[in-house]
């Protein structure tokens, strides 16, 4: 992957940029709160691009007014799941569903081994492709 140095997982916003500092994260949270979106924190150890539903850390945070509380929660999550991917999501409820408006990664494992591209020979000389994250070689819970 030429455009993606170091096998970094790229999902959500800002994922091609260098990791955000806490100040930058605070400003992003503030933007979400100013729009009255509910913010929640999720984590996973499976970087497959189709893995969209991550584990939620704690409760979704409604009725918040200040980013400091959410940043505190993010730091708690980083402490607990230091070697996992952690993302912050903001959901908008104005249309009657909590639809995701923002999603960005705030924590990565120290080592991201990347993906294995598997080519599958099918009938009629067609070829199927699939990718497998090397991180998923081990069973869940033993990956970090």
């Amino acid at each position: 992957m030429m455009t993606n140095y170091g096998n970094r997982m790229t999902q959500g916003q800002f994922s091609f940029l260098p990791d955000m500092t806490d100040e930058q994260i605070t400003m992003q949270i503030k933007y979400a709160l100013d729009n009255k979106w509910a913010v929640n924190i999720e984590y996973t150890d499976d970087p497959h691009p189709r893995n969209t539903y991550w584990e939620m850390y704690g409760m979704p945070m409604f009725d918040m007014t200040d980013p400091a509380g959410i940043l505190m929660e993010i730091n708690e999550c980083r402490k607990t799941f230091a070697n996992c991917y952690i993302r912050v999501m903001a959901s908008d409820a104005t249309r009657g569903t909590e639809s995701v408006k923002m999603s960005y990664i705030v924590n990565r494992p120290s080592n991201e081994p990347g993906y294995n591209l598997v080519r599958e020979e099918r009938t009629g000389r067609t070829q199927g492709y699939t990718i497998l994250p090397y991180a998923c070689d081990k069973p869940e819970g033993e990956r970090s």
């Binding site: 409760m59 009725d63 918040m64 007014t65 200040d66 980013p67 509380g69 505190m72």
Partner: peptide, 14 residues
């Protein structure tokens, strides 16, 4: 602990 933390989170900045 979660209950207290929840309240503290809500009060943050105030």
């Amino acid at each position: 602990a979660p209950k207290t933390k929840e309240v503290i989170k809500k009060a943050m900045g105030g």
